[in-house]
Nucleic acid binder design. Structure first.
Lengths: 107, 107
DNA sequence: ATCTACTACCTTGCTTTACAATATAGCAAG
DNA sequence: CTTGCTATATTGTAAAGCAAGGTAGTAGAT
């Protein structure tokens, strides 16, 4: 059992939360996540996730030139995305409390 | 996005923790999880998971008669299972801290 | 006897999703 | 002109939750 399975259904909420703070582009997110304690989230994970969320209308993209490479695709959170982020946060808090409750039993 | 994806890689650790407390059988686990805040974990989820963990050597089973139905299959945690439970707990704490960190930013 | 309901276990097929691997391409320094 | 960093995208695979369905045992009511 690796650690990757744990991320399912959690990563999208985390990306939403990060983009909600400030406009970000995919490549930046990949590096930024590490700063928050996530180890090596690959681009093969992030780009499909961003496109999925864009298709769902949670985020929007605008192209901008980069000072050092190809054009960047900056994402911002839509109102629908804010709603989803709030729902995610609620789900997470509930799940987190349940797991903590179970793990606390053994002492 | 439903809540079910979030459970991936988490449910097995939770089941391990519950079985580590006391000998349990599958049907009982299905009902018991609700008491810990998990909503409706179906038997189609639990039984394959138990068999998977048994195959991995994390839990062992013994049959026992039931006062009200077919024989029950009670599970106990093996030493390997204890090791895995400890590893799971560490992974969970780390992930949980990371997500909290990200979600806390928006205030 | 038969019907209903609860207990208890197991299997099949579907769907979602993380991710490795791979591809493409721009820019800059040496 | 090659190396390396930046930047986005696609393909194929595997893991895992779960709805739906199946099989049985026990027991009380009609």
């Amino acid at each position: 059992m690796s650690s990757t399975q744990m991320l399912k259904g959690i990563l999208d909420g985390c990306l939403l939360a990060l983009i909600a703070e400030e406009e970000l582009y995919g490549y930046e997110l990949a590096t930024k996540l590490a700063a928050y304690g996530f180890s090596d989230i690959s681009e093969g994970t992030i780009y499909p996730l961003l496109m999925r969320m864009q298709k769902l209308g949670w985020i929007e993209a605008t192209h901008r030139v980069s000072p050092s490479g190809p054009k960047r695709k900056y994402y911002t959170v839509t109102p629908d995305g804010r709603t989803e982020l709030a729902a995610f946060t609620t789900r997470w808090q509930k799940l987190s409390a349940s797991v903590q409750h179970i793990l606390k039993e053994e002492s």
